[in-house]
Design a protein around this nucleic acid. Structure first.
Lengths: 119, 119
DNA sequence: CCGGAGTGGTATCCAATGGAAACCAGATGC
DNA sequence: GCATCTGGTTTCCATTGGATACCACTCCGG
């Protein structure tokens, strides 16, 4: 395999794909790109996310170096999540997907209606 | 809600996000962007995909108008999947994510190693 | 002084999802 | 005659995701 093959299971880019192919991670990244937020602030902004998934998602993003977690020893403890420079470069690309969604959502919904009609 | 809010559960862009947040769909789209392929050709190119998931994924992409399915009445039946113009515009954006992955995979893996070391 | 709420999570349970494998019909190759 | 190819569907089981409860701690209102 001289040329890296994204479609091979062992290709490292598949690992990154797994991260992008995580609905909650994408939403968190897009939000943090606009500025740091605390745990419960994120939870309130992202409708439908459970505490478990948010906690899990943030842990994953931190591990990948896309998000930085900072805990302040206040009472009660305050935890702030901020995007890293690396994460910001990814968020840029993700933003392009959001733009695509907004531009083409009508076309997709029309296609779905046509498909369901035929069935 | 005057400004559309991607983070609201009922926002239609969340539907598109769900499609993008599908590992197999992204891989299929990226492959078909290079040219039409038959079912088993896709299966062989995408390492690790099961027949069930490939069939399911293709059905979804067809429903969304991103992929066109054509069956030829040969024996045995030949089915060809091709990307649509709409799908091509999305594949473009997805390609940018793949580029990001290739460029920054080393940084991500380094971050993971650091994180796991600390734990 | 006694709830109730807010902090950032973890633990537990159950439904839904994903993957592995078998099976299908029909024809072709050996 | 048996395996193999076509493009799937069906069945079963492991993993995952979501809902809910709970944790320790403190502040605030009554």
């Amino acid at each position: 395999m001289l040329v890296p093959d994204t479609y091979a299971a062992n290709c490292p880019t598949r690992l990154v794909l797994d991260r992008i192919a995580d609905k909650w991670a994408v939403l968190v990244l897009a939000l943090l790109a606009q500025g740091p937020l605390r745990f419960n602030a994120l939870r309130r902004r992202i409708e439908g996310v459970s505490q478990k998934m948010l906690s899990q998602t943030l842990k994953g993003l931190e591990r990948d170096g896309l998000v930085r977690r900072t805990a302040f020893p206040t009472v009660p403890v305050t935890v702030e999540y901020a995007i890293t420079p690396l994460g910001a470069t990814l968020a840029e690309r993700v933003e392009l997907l959001r733009d695509w969604a907004e531009q083409h959502i009508a076309a997709v919904q029309a296609a779905q209606a046509r498909y369901d009609q035929a069935a």
